[in-house]
Amino acid sequence: MSDVNMEAWYTPSGDVVTREIEGELIIVPITAGVGDMDDQLFSVNESGKIIWDTLDGKTSLTLIVQSLADRYSISGEEMEKDVRGFVGELLRRKMIIDARTSRTSS
């Protein structure tokens, strides 16, 4: 799993397309100029969608974890474990980027 930086400001990559379809968040990454619904189509469950919606490129993951833990009355440790796992998977598939790093490198 990719390293998750809790102080990073993650945001969806410009190379993914998302649509909410029939209550489900669908993600299609664009690789080499192709959005491949046959081989590269992803969906996230409701909990995943809640996290995805918080990845605004302006808030650190630490703050996101605190906010979600408060909102859903879940311990911070448990929430961090869930968020780390999910965000790590998104990073591994290059679906999100650290907004600050991408601004620096561009």
């Binding site: 996230v44 809640i50 859903y72």
Partner: peptide
């Protein structure tokens, strides 16, 4: 958030 977040391929 009753279930853990998941990304389904």
């Amino acid at each position: 958030m009753r279930e853990p977040p998941e990304l389904h391929h």
